[in-house]
Design a protein around this nucleic acid. Sequence first.
DNA 1: CGCGGCTTTGATGTTCATCAAGTAAAGTGG
DNA 2: CCACTTTACTTGATGAACATCAAAGCCGCG
Lengths: 231, 231
Amino acid sequence: MKLIRDINDCKTCAYKSYLFSNLQPEDLSRVNISRIEKEFLPGEHIVRQGDKIASFMYLRKGLLKLSREMEDGKNQIISIARPLDFIGLLSVFSESYYHFSITAIENSTLCFIDLSLMKEIIRKDGIFALKLLENMSNVNEMIMSSWLSINEKNLRGRIAYILLFFCNEIYHTEEYSLPVSRKEIAELIHMRTENVIRILSEFRKDKIIEIEGKLIRVLEKDKLQQIADFG
Amino acid sequence: MKLIRDINDCKTCAYKSYLFSNLQPEDLSRVNISRIEKEFLPGEHIVRQGDKIASFMYLRKGLLKLSREMEDGKNQIISIARPLDFIGLLSVFSESYYHFSITAIENSTLCFIDLSLMKEIIRKDGIFALKLLENMSNVNEMIMSSWLSINEKNLRGRIAYILLFFCNEIYHTEEYSLPVSRKEIAELIHMRTENVIRILSEFRKDKIIEIEGKLIRVLEKDKLQQIADFG
DNA sequence: CGCGGCTTTGATGTTCATCAAGTAAAGTGG
DNA sequence: CCACTTTACTTGATGAACATCAAAGCCGCG
C-alpha cells in the first residue's frame, strides 16, 4: 500500500460530478483536505472483516472484491466492484464494524474520507444526502440483481454469465486477463473450483472460448449469451 | 385493500421514533397530512414489479413478501418483511419503476407518503437523511446476510433455517401458522416445492417438528438449530 | 360440479460435490 | 540459485444430493 500526496484534487477529479457535484465549495475543500489517497496492489487488503469503520471510501481506479468469511471458514465473494460502483456505501452508515473484507484484485487507487466529516456534511447538506441515498440504492439493486440472476442458473449458465460480465461490464473487450483465480470464481458464483475448471474446459473444447492461463478470449459471444440466458 | 382515514397520526405513531423522531414539527405535520394509510389482506399486491415508484412506504403492521419475476417466468422471493424492516427503502430513491413486487402475506397496514414530499424533506433535513441512510444500510445488510447464509446450506439446513426464522424472528413462539405456501418457501430458499415438502416430512418423522397443514410446532429447537448450522 | 392450484409421495435420472491424484506455478528459506 | 513447501490448476472416477416426472388426493372457487 502506498500513500499518495498532492497528486490529485477533488475539484478536478474526473468522478467529482457523480457524487460531490453539488457540494458547497467550503465543504468540498474540507473533504479535499481530510482526504487520503492510497494505492493497493492486487491481493492487498483494503479493509478486513471485523475492522472498525472509520472512513468513507471511494474507488478511483482499479478493481476490488468484496468477500465474507462464513462461520465454517468458507469464503463467499459478494461482489466485484469498479470505480463508480460506490461500494463504500455498503453498510458504512449503519454498522460499526465491517461485515466483509475488501481486497484489491487489480492495481487500485482509493480515496478515504473521515467518516465523521462525511456525516457532518450529510447532516448539513440534504441534497448531498439524497444523492448518497440514490447511489446506495443503486449499489444494492445491482448486487441483488446479479445474485438473483446467478441463483437461477445452472453451472454452465453461471460460468457463461461471469465470462460475459468481465467481457461487457469490466473490460469491454472479448480478450482479457481474468483478475481472479478459479477458486475465486467459484466463491463468486457458488460452485466448486473443480467445476469452474471443468466447465471452462468444456467451453474451450466447444470452441466458445480460448484459454491461456488467466487469459480468456471469447470466440462465440452469442453462444455464451445463449448459455447464460438458458442455463 | 381498504383506505383508512383519521385513525392514526404520525405524532402518536408507535414507530415514529424509529424514523421521524427528529423531524421538524412542521415537516412531520406535512407528512401526516399527505400520508395515506391502507390495509391489505393476505395475497393482495401492494406494488407490482414494473409499477412507477410514487410513494415512500412504510409497514405499520403485518407481514409482506418481496418477490421478483425473472425473465423465464420463475419467481424468486427476495425477502420477508416485518414492521421496522423499512423495506420501502429498497431502491426507492434510485429507480423510477419497481424491480420487484410487494405482496401482503398477513393482514397488513401500510402508510404511503408522497415521494416528492419525502425528497423535499430530505433535501432540507440532513439529519433525517442520515437516519434514512442508516436504515437503508440496515435493510440491505440484513437481506444480504440472510442470502449468504442460505446459499451455503444444503436443503435440510435451509428448511431448518427458515423454520427457525419464523420461530425466532417473526412469531417468537414454537408454534405458528406458516404465512407462506410450500411453493413460496421454495422460492425463498432456492429449492423445489417437492423437496420443501419432503424435508418437512422428514423432520416430522424425526419428531423435530409437528405439522398440521400450515401449522408448525417446533419440538426440538436445538436439533433444528444444529441442522441449520451444520447443513 | 369441475377446474386449477396446492400438497404429497414415489420413482427416476441428472447435476453437481467430493475424493483422489498429478502437474504446473509461485512463494520461501538456506 | 536451488531445494522445499505451498498454492493453483487440471482431469477422472464415484456417489450423493437434488431436480424432474408422474400420479393422486385435497381444497377453494366460480
